[in-house]
Deep mutational scan, measured.
Amino acid sequence: MPGGGPEMDDYMETLKDEEDALWENVECNRHMLSRYINPAKLTPYLRQCKVIDEQDEDEVLNAPMLPSKINRAGRLLDILHTKGQRGYVVFLESLEFYYPELYKLVTGKEPTRRFSTIVVEEGHEGLTHFLMNEVIKLQQQMKAKDLQRCELLARLRQLEDEKKQMTLTRVELLTFQERYYKMKEERDSYNDELVKVKDDNYNLAMRYAQLSEEKNMAVMRSRDLQLEIDQLKHRLNKMEEECKLERNQSLKLKNDIENRPKKEQVLELERENEMLKTKNQELQSIIQAGKRSLPDSDKAILDILEHDRKEALEDRQELVNRIYNLQEEARQAEELRDKYLEEKEDLELKCSTLGKDCEMYKHRMNTVMLQLEEVERERDQAFHSRDEAQTQYSQCLIEKDKYRKQIRELEEKNDEMRIEMVRREACIVNLESKLRRLSKDSNNLDQSLPRNLPVTIISQDFGDASPRTNGQEADDSSTSEESPEDSKYFLPYHPPQRRMNLKGIQLQRAKS
């Protein structure tokens, strides 16, 4: 015994090295194993092979420090690593049964499904019991997946119906949107047309105001020219009257000059006056001389005659003075006559000038009245044309509004008919989907599995289990394997941990 101590140590070291070499393959693929292994699927088989106990299973599945599946799978690998070579062998058998691809990844061999460990530990009855539990578990999982698949199909059909409904609603909204954009385009076109009409109206108003201003300026210029013409006519008439007055005065002077006595007659009258003065002096001298030589009687007679002569001279002087006064009065009367005649001529000139001015103003008033009548006639014609244009424009607008209203009513009726057609199509689609759903539900009910399987069917299934373990590994792997896509769409199922009653199965096998 003492001599065998070193050999035992060498043997233990060799086993430990082999164990480390075995687990080295697992550690190399630890990331892939932790990512894809579900500990809840492996722990029943590991407990059946007595590699882990209930406490280890509870620690792996329910520990609060292991929230994710990767953490739980890593903890399970750590626990199996502590179990040595047996933990490695049982772990590979569980991978061979549940995850053939991972088994091939770790060992590089094809899975054979021999279950040597569980046969050694529990015997064939334990293997049968384990396989029966796994089959029931798989059936329950398949039923749950079928239910989930039916629910998802129903949800899918519902979503398809909602999608069709949303599509129809979208078509309806597109119809309304198209109608909205069309009405918006019509409104924009009408606004552009309105702005264009306003611009045209403004341009016409500006043109009309400009023409009116030009016409008023032309009328004012015409009036100024007419006033200048009238003033020139007035000056012409005044000059004609002055010329006529000057002509009359010149004719009067000419007549006075023609009626003036001649120079010879004046000289002859002056000679006669001198001769008479000479004779008068001679007679006076004779009379003076006679007075001195005459007697007293003759002197008395001469005195009487002288007195008579003096009286006659006085009378004559009075007559001469009277004649002079009369001549002066006649001259003054002639001057007054000439003055009055001049005033008369001036008044006649003024009267004729005023008459011509009156005629001029009368003509001017007639011209202004004619212009006013023409302006009123043009204004009435413009008003009439404007009223006709406004009436025609309003009539066109009324007809346009009428046609637009008819078009809008027809478009609304068309839209309502399209919407009604879309709604009826939606109703038809809904009815078809309901009919299809009812038909599929009836087919699913016919094809669904019963909840409680008979014992004979279970025994028959387990009677055929042994050949399947040898020759149909691919079928078992397809039913027991969970793909990543299934984990996305289906909830994980945790079967209840219970042991099955095998009395009925044993009785059935005894009868057979």
Rank of each mutant, 00 (worst) to 15 (best):
E54V: 08
Y45F: 14
K16W: 12
D56L: 01
K145I: 10
K143H: 10
D9M: 13
D58T: 00
G126R: 15
V135E: 01
V60K: 00
E122R: 07
A63R: 00
E13T: 13
K109Q: 07
L131V: 06
M8W: 13
M12D: 09
N29R: 07
L77R: 01
C28P: 01
D78N: 03
Q140A: 12
G4M: 13
D78P: 01
C49H: 15
I37H: 01
K137S: 08
T128H: 13
G108E: 07
E134K: 08
D10F: 13
G84L: 04
F130G: 14
K69M: 04
S116N: 09
G84V: 03
N71H: 06
L33P: 01
I70R: 04
E54Q: 05
L15D: 10
I52N: 02
I79A: 02
I136T: 11
E59G: 00
R47V: 01
E121A: 10
V119R: 15
T117L: 09
E27S: 05
L46A: 01
E54Y: 07
G84T: 02
V26G: 06
D9I: 10
M132V: 07
G123K: 14
M32R: 08
Y36A: 10
R114S: 14
P111F: 04
T14E: 12
R113N: 12
F115W: 15
L46I: 05
H124W: 07
K137I: 14
P67I: 10
L102E: 09
N133W: 10
Y98P: 03
K50I: 05
L42V: 06
Y103R: 04
C49E: 15
K137P: 06
Q141H: 11
D53Q: 04
N25V: 09
K145A: 10
G123S: 15
V89T: 15
G84E: 06
E96F: 02
V106G: 02
W23G: 08
G123Q: 15
F91K: 09
P6F: 12
C49G: 14
L92D: 15
R72Y: 00
S94N: 01
L92A: 05
Y11Q: 13
Y11P: 12
K145Y: 10
N133D: 06
L77Y: 02
P111T: 14
K50N: 08
P44H: 03
T43A: 04
T82L: 09
G126N: 15
L66V: 00
Q48F: 02
V90W: 06
H81W: 04
E59H: 07
W23E: 11
Q140E: 09
M132H: 00
D9W: 09
P111I: 06
Y88I: 05
E27K: 02
A63V: 00
V90S: 09
M32V: 13
A73Q: 01
I79Y: 02
T128Q: 08
E122N: 09
P44I: 04
Q139A: 09
G4I: 12
S116W: 04
M142S: 11
S68C: 11
L138R: 07
P6A: 12
G5Y: 14
C49M: 14
I136K: 08
I37T: 01
L66I: 03
I79P: 00
L33H: 00
D58K: 03
M142F: 14
N62E: 08
Y103P: 01
I52F: 07
D20L: 09
Q55D: 05
N62M: 05
E18M: 10
L46Q: 02
V26S: 07
V90C: 15
L77K: 03
P64T: 08
C28D: 06
E110C: 09
I52K: 02
L131N: 00
Y36I: 14
P67V: 07
Q141A: 13
M8E: 13
K83V: 05
K83S: 08
G5I: 10
A21F: 10
V89S: 14
N62D: 04
Q139C: 15
H31E: 05
N29E: 02
Y45I: 09
L61Q: 06
F115A: 14
D58N: 05
K109E: 06
K50Y: 07
T82S: 11
E19T: 12
L76W: 01
G4C: 13
L33R: 01
C28T: 09
M8A: 12
K143C: 14
D20E: 13
K137R: 14
L15W: 12
E125S: 14
D146W: 09
R113G: 08
E24W: 08
D56K: 01
E57S: 03
D58H: 00
A21Q: 09
L80W: 03
D20F: 09
A144L: 13
K145S: 11
L131Q: 05
K83G: 04
E57W: 03
R72A: 00
I79D: 02
I52Q: 05
V89Y: 08
L22P: 05
L105V: 03
V135A: 05
Q55H: 11
Q140C: 09
G123D: 15
T112S: 14
L102M: 01
M132R: 07
S94Y: 02
E13L: 12
M8V: 13
R86W: 07
M65Y: 03
V90L: 14
G87I: 00
S116Y: 05
S116H: 07
R30V: 00
E18V: 12
A73R: 01
T112M: 15
Y88C: 07
E13I: 13
G123F: 15
P111L: 02
H124E: 15
D9R: 11
A40M: 04
L15A: 12
E134P: 15
E24L: 08
L66M: 05
S68E: 00
R47M: 01
P6E: 13
Q140N: 12
D17P: 10
E122H: 07
Y45S: 03
L22Y: 11
T128L: 15
T107A: 10
M132T: 07
M132D: 04
R75E: 02
L42Q: 00
L102Q: 05
R30Q: 03
V119C: 07
N133M: 05
A144V: 10
Q48G: 06
E54P: 05
K41M: 05
L61T: 00
D20R: 08
P111E: 08
K83R: 12
V90F: 15
Y11T: 13
S116E: 11
S34V: 13
H124R: 14
Q85Y: 09
H81P: 04
K50Q: 10
V135W: 04
P67M: 14
Y88V: 09
T112Q: 15
M12N: 10
D17V: 12
L127K: 07
K109P: 05
E93C: 07
N71A: 13
L105Q: 03
E19L: 12
Q140D: 09
R35Q: 05
I52H: 02
L77I: 12
I70Q: 07
F130M: 15
L66G: 00
N38I: 02
M142K: 11
Y45D: 03
K83C: 05
M12I: 14
I37Q: 01
V135T: 07
L92G: 03
